[in-house]
Design a binder for these strands. Structure first.
Lengths: 183, 183
DNA sequence: ATTTCATAGAACGGAGCTGTTCAATGAAAG
DNA sequence: CTTTCATTGAACAGCTCCGTTCTATGAAAT
């Protein structure tokens, strides 16, 4: 039955967000799903398939901000502000999961693999932002580093959570950093 | 015997740096120290005492850069550059341990407690740097956030490792970000 | 009406870790 | 020389997880 499968992946996603993938056990998933451990193994013979199902499930529910509209924005500053604001709004909604997943990626190889599409997306975002500034860039290395840094989730965590900035203020600060690398 | 105790704490520190505190087991420590598990329990009845011994051992071997000289530097820019450069050099030497400890702090309460002195040190550093700029600061909130962000280990990780910047270049970039908050 | 199949429920052996206990060894201190 | 004490080595019960196996139930498909 399809509903059983979904209850399992939903339970897994729930636990990944609550305690993190590293601490999530098959036993825990089965219990939360109200299912026998055995049943989990039937649907997902390998952890790999389970992780894949979780990724689909989660990213399906939390799609990344669409980058297409940003490409239409000619002004580098506007493009940057728009993209960063959207991205930071998105981070608010996926905070728990990203916090746990990025933390556990270092210890659980499967988690790192599951994050690769997201990492690729961030690289795309960064490339689009860099492109806008590229023509006038006098320090391309610094520009690239600054944009990639701005786009990362740990940077959002630092500025928003630990430094207590409002998202718009954080965007302002990072915009200044990035634009300090262009004339 | 005192040497046994030190072999135990050294083994523990070694494992904390290699695989992280969260994955470090008493059994593993005993084995690496070439000692019976029992012996570990004798010297450190509670995990708390073991962690305390590890902290002393590690911070003793890797003392934080002295902040006193920085207070003598009148120029805010010079003070900032000097301090950040020293701090970033220090981060190179404690990278593994900080990477693991900060990651595991979220899941192992004892690790978080052990890190509090270090966190306090970073706050001191930030305060000293902010002080230098404070008189001319027109946006104190931004200034404070920027300095705290610059001083954090995750920021160093991002700029140095993931963005691939040279330390001096990273310092330059962050200096610009910070100084963009003052006239 | 019968077969098929997903699931429940229970159990197995194996692994790794925990904290504790016991007896044996050996070295240093009195 | 004798006592004290740190350490060894081995064992115990306990816990949680793993992956697998068996039987039983029940519902849906044919």
């Amino acid at each position: 039955m399809e509903t059983t499968r979904r209850r399992i992946t939903q339970a897994a996603v729930e636990l990944h967000g609550r305690i993190g993938p590293a601490q999530t056990t098959i036993a825990g998933i089965a219990e939360l799903a109200g299912v026998q451990r055995h049943t989990v193994y039937r649907h997902f013979p390998t952890e790999e398939e389970l992780f894949a199902a979780c990724s689909s499930e989660y990213w399906g529910d939390h799609p990344w901000p669409d980058v297409m509209p940003w490409k239409e924005i000619g002004s580098p500053s506007d493009r940057l502000t728009t993209a960063l604001t959207a991205l930071y709004g998105y981070y608010e909604t996926v905070e728990q999961m990203l916090t746990n997943a990025l933390r556990d990626a270092a210890t659980v190889p499967l988690v790192e693999r599951s994050l690769q599409p997201f990492t690729g997306y961030l690289d795309d975002v960064a490339a689009i932002l860099i492109d806008a500034y590229a023509p006038q860039a006098t320090e391309p290395v610094l520009l690239k580093a600054a944009v990639h840094h701005a786009v990362e989730f740990p940077t959002w965590q630092s500025l928003i959570h630990r430094q207590g900035l409002q998202p718009e203020v954080a965007v302002t600060l990072l915009t200044r950093m990035i634009e300090s690398t262009t004339p």
